[in-house]
């Protein structure tokens, strides 16, 4: 294995399908051990990005690398280093669960396929269904088998296309836990998702795509801050009194302020830096603080971004 740079590296990756450009000069790095979520509406280029990294599609221009191997020029090396979980579980339904996973282990020439299959099924929580035909499983269990299959050869990089798509909340939470465990073991994970709350909880960074353009990339907090401003919301136990108002309004870092009877929302110069000082001032003014939280979540930031014109498009 060779890796001098990021685990996943996209440089000006462009892909066209006929007259339509699905991806416009995408630049994106994913560091080793990071979980990065690709967000965006349908047709934004998320799946195209994953397919290029999975060596299923070739970029028309630009380079994409996995652990320094070029996906277009050295696809076989890349395929040995990645585990791919497509949106649909895509299992051989007539085969037992363990045969599905064993086939992957054998093609990857895993040293002890039996042990590797058992370990992967155990990790995914489907060891008790090993002998059942894959077609007899629920969607959630199939997704777990697909994950077991993707990790049976312990790849350093995982590409997951909507891993919790179509799962009920508890199955989705369980899938989220499995992904987090893999990242804890050092696996680099790039995933597509439409579940923004999940992305906010799970991902170290998110990249928001629209019509093939990368619009934003950063931690969920950075994206929120960039799109919604540095707004924090403070909730009080009782009604806001005059000393509390003065404490807020006299704080130079407060750019804007919105009052409600028992809460205040402030736009700060830098939420990360200024929030502790704001809280300290409120406490000194005698405020009984119940909660301090960033105003708005990733979903609100995402919707804000989607309401803006795409750079480079006719509307921009």
């Amino acid at each position: 294995m060779r890796c001098a740079g990021p685990a996943i590296e996209c440089r000006a990756v462009t892909r066209r399908f006929g007259a339509r450009t699905a991806l416009h000069a995408l630049d994106l790095d994913v560091e080793a051990g990071e979980i990065v979520g690709l967000l965006g509406p349908n047709g934004s280029g998320k799946t195209t990005t994953l397919r290029i990294l999975a060596t299923l599609l070739r970029p028309d221009s630009g380079t994409a690398r996995i652990l320094s191997w070029d996906v277009a020029a050295e696809p076989m090396q890349v395929r040995r280093l990645i585990g791919v979980m497509p949106e649909r579980p895509s299992l051989y339904d007539r085969h037992p669960v363990e045969d599905n996973v064993r086939f992957w282990a054998e093609v990857h020439q895993v040293r002890d396929p039996g042990a590797a299959v058992a370990r992967a099924l155990e990790f995914a929580g489907v060891a008790d269904r090993a002998r059942d035909p894959a077609g007899s499983l629920s969607k959630g269990l199939k997704q777990r088998v697909a994950l077991a299959r993707a990790i049976v050869h312990r790849p350093p990089v995982l590409l997951l296309d909507e891993p919790s798509s179509g799962l009920d909340p508890s199955a989705a939470a369980s899938m989220e836990g499995l992904i987090r465990d893999l990242a804890r073991e050092g696996t680099t994970i790039l995933l597509n998702t439409h579940r923004l709350a999940e992305a906010e909880r799970l991902c170290d960074r998110v990249a928001i795509l629209r019509e093939g353009h990368l619009l934003q990339v950063g931690t969920p907090q950075q994206v929120r801050a960039a799109l919604l401003g540095h707004i924090v919301e403070v909730e009080f136990a009782g009604l806001v009194d005059l000393p509390v108002r003065r404490a807020v309004e006299s704080f130079p870092a407060v750019r804007e302020v919105w009052w409600s009877p028992s809460a205040v929302r402030c736009r700060l110069s830098d939420a990360g830096r200024d929030t502790p000082e704001l809280v300290a001032r409120l406490v000194r003014a005698g405020a009984a603080i119940v909660a301090v939280r960033p105003a708005g979540d990733l979903e609100r930031a995402y919707l804000e971004l989607m309401s803006q014109p795409v750079p480079g498009s006719l509307a921009a």
């Binding site: 999975a54 060596t55 299923l56 076989m76 395929r79 040995r80 990645i82 791919v84 497509p86 649909r88 895509s90 299992l91 051989y92 339904d93 992957w104 093609v107 990857h108 697909a146 299959r149």
Partner: peptide
């Protein structure tokens, strides 16, 4: 048709 081609093509097989 059974949706298994895409993952199959990500395996290290020329």
């Amino acid at each position: 048709d059974q949706g298994t081609l895409e993952p199959l093509l990500t395996l290290p097989l020329s």
